[in-house]
Amino acid sequence: MNKRFFIGIAISLVFYGVVQALISGEILNDFYIDTLVMLGVNIILAVSLNLINGFTGQFSIGHAGFMSIGAYVSAIMTTNLGYSFPLGLLCGCLAAAVAGLIIGFPTLRLKGDYLAIATLGFGEIIRIVWLNNDYVGGAAGLNGIERVTNWSWIFFGVLVAVVVIQNIVKSTHGRAMISVRENEIAAEAMGINVTKYKVIAFVVGAFFAGMAGAFSAHYFYGIAPTSYNFMKSFEILVFVVLGGLGSTAGTIIGTILLTLLFTYLQDIPEWRMVIYSMILILTMIFRPKGLLGNVDVTKFFKKGGASKNGGTTTTP
C-alpha cells in the first residue's frame, strides 16, 4: 500500500465521479451506459482469466462456465427466491469460487492442451446442467430479472477485481504463481506449493467470473444457457491474449478495444465478424505477445526502473 496505489485509486474515483455526473446529467444516453456495463463485465472476466492463464500459466478455456454459475445462482436468489441483490451477488461469487475449487483440484494433474480441453469440458457440462434443468427455465433461461446493476456497481466491481488481483500478483503469492508458470518443476524444487497456487488462481479467478456473471444477469434482463457456451470462453480468452497475457493493463486495454470494435462494427453486420477475425489474426501475427505484452504500464508512472513482470513465455 504505497503512495502510488492511493494515487491510482484517487484517479479512478475521479473518473467514476465524472462519469456518474455525466449519467446523472443525462449527457450520456442509455446506449453508452449499456456499453460501459458491458465493458465492465468483460474487463472483470478478462482480468480474472488473466490470473489463471496469464500469471499462473494454467491454460483454461472454461471461464464462461464460472460466469454462468455466478449469473444463475444470483438470479435464482433474487428472482426465484426474492433475496436482495447484494446477497445474491455474494452467493453467486461464492458458488463460482466453489466450482473453481472443484474444477481446480482434479485438473491439477493435467497440463497445457489437456488441461484446456478438460476445462472446456467442465464449462460445457455446467452449461448442459442449466440447459436440462427446468427450475432455471431450460433453454429459455431465466427472464424478467430486475435491472439492479448500474454504473456504480460495475465500477466498484471492476475496481475490486483489479485491486485484489493486482495485489495478489504483486505479492509473494503472485511471484510464486509466476514461478509456477515459468517452470513448475523449478518452482516445486524451490519449495513452492504448486498445487496450492494453482488452486488459489482457479478459485479467485472463478470468484470474479461469477461476479461478472451476476452483474450481467442483473443488467441485461435475462440469462440463457447459450450465452455461456465455449464460444464465450474463447471470447474471454481472446481479450486476454490480445491485450497481453500476464499484463493487467494490457488485458484491460485489449478488452476495451475489442468490445468497442465489436460495437462499432454493428452497423455492417455482414462484415462484422470477418473484420473482427482479420484484426485478431493480424494482431497475433504482428504483436504475438499481445498489444501490451511485456509492457508494464505502471512503469510510465514510476520514476526510474520498471518492474518487468508482464509478458508471456513460450510453453515448453
Binding site: N53, F59, G112, D113, F234, L237, V238, V241, L242, L245, M273, Y276, S277, M278, L280, I281, M284, I285, P288, K289, T312, T313, T314, T315
Partner: peptide, 15 residues
C-alpha cells in the same frame, strides 16, 4: 511464438 498465440490465431482463422 507461444502456443496460446497460435491457438488464438487458429480461432481467428476459424471465425
Amino acid at each position: 511464438a507461444a502456443r496460446i498465440v497460435i491457438l488464438i490465431t487458429a480461432i481467428g482463422v476459424s471465425f
